[in-house]
């Protein structure tokens, strides 16, 4: 397989349901914590180093072949908000569907049988990367990038933000994406020998609280 498969997997148009989720941006916009490109940038930076790092670690570990059931439990323990656990499993199920159609693999089929209602998205992402012939570094990059690209495209819709400003936010985070992917892969390699406790567990209190605030709204644009 080819490295270019990463472009297919990381493409925002990959049909795996991400467009309906804001990664916490909708709650932060409503609370006034994101009001423009600068605060979006800080939001994304914080999400990248917390939820993004955690997701990247799980994805890299799955890509390395660590037991997905253990990883899914580790993801549960790292996701206290039930609204976020539901969203992660929904997205995991949608990603699995898209990945199985794109890169048929026995491992993906087995994951579908183990988790008919969906495993945590980063775990599925790691196995999808594996099925696409990609490695843990690719999986970590993909997860880290999604942790910031999702809220950014959602904020463009929520605030009618200038799309060029939004894209610049993502580009400026590139060096930090590199560092997060490196940390995630290093931890994942450690987890091969030491178990899933070695994986990052970065958390963001306002993402957790905001997810529950958002889930309680009667009317919202995004699913999470």
């Amino acid at each position: 397989m080819s490295r270019a498969a990463l472009l297919v997997l990381a493409d925002g148009r990959f049909p795996a349901g991400g467009h309906a989720h804001s990664g916490g941006a909708e709650a932060a916009v409503k609370a006034g914590r994101i009001s423009g490109a600068a605060s979006l940038g800080e939001f994304c930076r914080g999400r990248l180093h917390t939820a993004g790092l955690t997701a990247a670690g799980l994805s890299a570990a799955a890509a390395l072949g660590i037991d997905p059931v253990a990883l899914d439990r580790a993801a549960d323990a790292r996701t206290p908000s039930p609204a976020l656990r539901v969203a992660a499993r929904k997205l995991g199920r949608q990603l699995l569907r898209a990945a199985r159609a794109t890169w048929p693999s026995a491992e993906l089929d087995a994951l579908g049988r183990e988790f008919p209602k969906g495993a945590h998205q980063p775990v599925v992402l790691g196995l999808a990367a594996r099925a696409a012939g990609l490695g843990p570094v690719d999986a970590a990059y993909c997860a880290a990038y999604e942790s910031v690209s999702g809220p950014t495209s959602a904020t463009v819709r929520l605030l009618s933000l200038d799309p060029f400003d939004a894209t610049r936010v993502l580009a400026r985070l590139a060096p930090e994406l590199d560092r997060v992917a490196d940390r995630a892969v290093e931890a994942a390699r450690k987890a091969v020998g030491e178990g899933v406790d070695a994986l990052p567990a970065g958390s963001a209190p306002l993402l957790e609280i905001g997810a529950e605030v958002h889930a309680a709204w009667p009317v919202r644009l995004f699913a999470s």
Binding site: R13, P15, A16, G17, G18, H19, A20, K90, R93, Q94, L95, R97, A98
Partner: peptide
């Protein structure tokens, strides 16, 4: 998008 470009949620 949900009915044309990314139908995964609807299929589910």
């Amino acid at each position: 998008t949900a009915i044309r470009d990314d139908i995964s949620a609807n299929l589910e």
